[in-house]
Amino acid sequence: MNSVRITRAVLAVTTAVGSLSLGACATGADGTEQGTAPGSAVVGVTMVPEGERRPLGEIRGETLDGGKLDVADHRGRIVVLNVWASWCAPCRAEAPHLADVAEETRSEGVRFVGVDTRDTRRLALAFEEEYGVPYPSLYDPDGRLVLSGFPKGTLHPRAVPSTVVVDREGRIAARAMGELSREDLHGMIDPLLAEG
C-alpha cells in the first residue's frame, strides 16, 4: 500500500515538474538554445487576489542601451515585466504581441519592462530592433536581477520566457510562464486596470 502511494506521489511530482518546462527554453553553457517543448503553450497564468499580493523586490540596473532603470520608479502604474532572451524561440514568437499590447495600454498607464537574461548585449539589441520592442530592457546576463528581485514565497519567473505583472501598489499580481498571446496579456492586465 505504501509503495502505491509513493509511486503516485512520484508521478504527481514528475508531471508537475515536467509541466514547468512547456513553452520554455533551455540553454547550454554557450548560451545557445538547446530546444523547446513541442508547441508553445503558456504554462498557466496565475492571478493573485488583491488582498494576498506581496511586494516586488528591487529590480534595477543597466538597460541594454546603457541607461539606468529602476522598476520602483513606475510605482502608481501597472508594470509588465517580461523575462526573455534572443536565443529563445517562444520569446521571438511572443515579441510582436508584447510590443503591440505595450503600445495599446501605454495611455492607460501600463508600462512594460524587459529583462534580458543569459544573453549577449549584441544579440539582445538586434532582437529588440528586429521586433520593434518599444520599451526598455534591463540587461541581466547572469540572472541575478531575476533571482534577487522576487522575495521568497512570491510568484517569480521560473523559465524563459516568463511574464510577471505588478499592480499599481508595486505588488506581484500575476505570472505566466511560456509564450503569451495578445489575449493572454490582456487577461493579465485588464483586471488590474479595472481595479481603479
Rank of each mutant, 00 (worst) to 15 (best):
Pro134His: 09
Pro134Phe: 11
Pro134Gly: 12
Pro134Leu: 13
Tyr135Ala: 10
Tyr135Phe: 15
Tyr135Asn: 09
Tyr135Cys: 05
Pro136His: 09
Pro136Leu: 14
Ser137Thr: 11
Ser137Cys: 15
Leu138Thr: 07
Leu138Met: 12
Leu138Trp: 08
Tyr139Ala: 12
Tyr139Gln: 09
Tyr139Gly: 07
Asp140Phe: 14
Asp140Val: 13
Pro141Val: 13
Pro141Ala: 13
Asp142Lys: 15
Gly143Asp: 10
Gly143Trp: 09
Arg144Trp: 09
Arg144Phe: 13
Arg144Pro: 00
Leu145Val: 09
Leu145Ser: 09
Leu145His: 05
Val146Trp: 11
Val146Leu: 15
Val146Pro: 04
Val146Phe: 07
Val146Gln: 12
Leu147Val: 11
Ser148Met: 14
Ser148Ile: 10
Ser148Val: 08
Ser148Gly: 10
Gly149Asp: 13
Gly149Val: 15
Gly149Phe: 15
Gly149Arg: 15
Gly149Ala: 13
Phe150Glu: 08
Phe150Asp: 09
Phe150Val: 13
Pro151Val: 14
Pro151Asp: 13
Lys152Asn: 14
Thr154Gln: 11
Thr154Ile: 11
Leu155Ala: 15
Leu155Tyr: 03
Leu155Gln: 14
Pro157Asn: 12
Pro157Gly: 08
Pro157Met: 15
Pro157Phe: 15
Pro157Ser: 10
Ala159Ile: 04
Ala159Gly: 15
Ala159Trp: 13
Val160Gly: 00
Val160Met: 07
Pro161Asn: 09
Pro161Phe: 07
Pro161Ser: 06
Pro161Cys: 07
Ser162Ala: 13
Ser162Pro: 01
Ser162Gly: 06
Thr163Gln: 07
Thr163Val: 14
Thr163Leu: 11
Thr163Tyr: 11
Val164His: 14
Val165Thr: 08
Val166Lys: 05
Val166Leu: 02
Asp167Trp: 06
Asp167Ser: 08
Asp167Asn: 07
Glu169Cys: 01
Glu169Asn: 07
Glu169Lys: 08
Gly170Ala: 04
Gly170Asn: 04
Arg171His: 05
Arg171Thr: 06
Ile172Glu: 01
Ile172Ala: 01
Ala173Asp: 01
Ala173His: 02
Ala173Ser: 06
Ala173Tyr: 03
Ala173Gln: 02
Ala173Met: 03
Ala173Trp: 04
Ala174Gln: 03
Ala174Glu: 00
Ala174Pro: 03
Ala174Gly: 01
Ala174His: 02
Ala174Cys: 06
Arg175Met: 05
Arg175Glu: 09
Arg175Phe: 04
Ala176Val: 09
Met177Phe: 06
Met177Cys: 03
Gly178Asn: 06
Glu179Cys: 02
Glu179Thr: 04
Glu179Asp: 02
Glu179Ser: 01
Leu180Gly: 02
Leu180Lys: 11
Leu180Met: 12
Leu180Asp: 06
Ser181Asp: 04
Arg182Gln: 09
Arg182Trp: 02
Glu183Leu: 06
Glu183Asp: 06
Asp184Thr: 07
Asp184Trp: 00
Asp184Arg: 01
Asp184Pro: 00
Leu185Cys: 07
Leu185Ile: 05
Leu185Tyr: 02
Leu185Glu: 05
His186Glu: 05
Gly187Trp: 00
Gly187Ala: 01
Gly187His: 02
Met188Tyr: 00
Met188Arg: 01
Ile189Leu: 02
Ile189Glu: 02
Ile189Pro: 01
Asp190Val: 08
Pro191Asp: 00
Leu192Arg: 00
Leu193His: 02
Leu193Trp: 00
Ala194Asp: 10
Ala194Lys: 08
Ala194Leu: 07
Ala194Tyr: 04
